[in-house]
């Protein structure tokens, strides 16, 4: 038999994920406070005005370079890290998983593809380290973070770019480029929050990224369940609040993504206009509300990330309490004959 299907990562990976999330959220709040200052003026005020926001953004940027440097060195210098590269390479199965997801939604497939499955249940043995979405996230975020770090360092002190172009306006182009690049990641993170916060079996947070595999007890010798037809999700009870919370958050995620996308098209800063332009183009009430809803989604993400860590701490404590009490064979007392 299998282990809990959400225990896939090492302790180092789960801690890294939480630190990276905190750092990226800090970069989002400060960076998009600057870019969408029309709509997020309150965020700029809260974070210490323009000087404060810019300083915090640089501090978080320093943290990001350190985290990326740490992760790249760890992946390259350890056999566990190098061994994981194979696991994240997209394959034909991942394309099939996306196609099957669409079919599943349309009612033309009975189950999600193993490479798409978040809740695996009885079929946890079939599920890879990362789903097709997980692989996409790793690749897209890697490219994004690389480009953002390079462009961010170039505009760290504008003199760096100005040395290459000998002009302030060209430096402005790099600031705009940096902000526009991050929009993909901003939208991606909103989806990531929805994907891992609102799966009905895991609501309100999927603990895969928080509880390391080393803390998930494994069960062996359950041959009967290996051949189960379903994942077993029909034996779980849906949370009473899942439906309305998920619909609300789904709507917020869609509004947030559309709004930051629209905002990024209007709030462009290059070429620098000759006239003094108050505001960032046709910014209006709807866009302001929409972008603020997007920021709310990010706040929910931070809360869920914290909650995931809280769950891990509780899990650790329960493990400590239960380990000494286990029976001689390491098993638990079964409730009925079915175990």
């Amino acid at each position: 038999m299998t282990n809990l299907d959400h225990g896939k990562f090492t302790h180092v990976t789960t801690v890294f994920h939480s630190l990276l999330a905190l750092d990226v959220f800090a970069l989002f709040f400060t960076g998009y406070g600057i870019m969408f200052n029309d709509e997020l003026w309150w965020l700029v005020v809260l974070l210490g005005g323009y000087q404060g926001v810019a300083a915090l953004h640089r501090i978080a940027g320093f943290g990001l370079v350190a985290l990326i440097g740490f992760w790249m060195l760890l992946m390259l210098t350890t056999s566990t890290g190098r061994g994981n590269f194979r696991e994240i390479v997209p394959t034909g199965d991942d394309v099939a998983a996306f196609v099957q997801d669409v079919k599943f939604v349309l009612g033309r497939a009975d189950e999600r593809h193993p490479n798409a499955r978040q809740f695996a249940g009885y079929k946890a043995d079939e599920v890879p380290l990362l789903s097709y979405v997980g692989k996409g996230v790793v690749f897209i975020f890697s490219v994004e973070l690389t480009l953002l770090t390079v462009s961010g360092l170039l505009i760290w002190s504008k003199t760096g770019v100005m040395q290459f172009f000998a002009t302030k306006t060209a430096a402005m182009a790099f600031v705009v480029f940096h902000g526009l690049l991050g929009v993909i990641m901003l939208m991606g993170v909103m989806f990531h929050i929805f994907e891992h916060g609102f799966h009905p079996a895991f609501y309100p947070v999927e603990t895969k990224a928080f509880i390391p595999r080393s803390m998930i007890p494994e069960a062996h010798g359950h041959e009967g369940e290996r051949e189960a037809d379903t994942t077993g999700i029909e034996r779980l009870t849906l949370s009473p609040s899942w439906s309305w919370v998920t619909n609300l958050m789904g709507a917020f995620v869609v509004i947030g993504i559309v709004s930051v996308l629209m905002g990024s098209i209007f709030d462009e800063g290059y070429p620098v206009p000759n006239e003094l332009a108050v505001g960032g183009g046709p910014s209006n009430l709807l866009l302001t509300v929409g972008i603020n809803i997007g920021v709310f989604v990010l706040f929910v993400g931070i809360v869920l990330s914290m909650y995931g860590n809280l769950v891990r701490i509780r899990w650790e404590r329960q493990l400590e309490r239960e380990r000494p009490r286990t029976t001689a064979d390491g098993g638990r007392v079964a409730e009925s004959g079915e175990d």
Binding site: M1, N3, T10, H11, V12, L74, T77, T78, S79, T80, G81, G83, P212, R213, S214, M215, I216, P217, E218, A219, H220, G221, H222, L319, T326, D329, G330, G331, R332, A334, D339
Partner: peptide, 16 residues
Amino acid sequence: MDRDLPETAGYSPLAV
């Protein structure tokens, strides 16, 4: 039924 914490290949403290 046997139910144990798994042996996992993690990262050495030195590498971290």
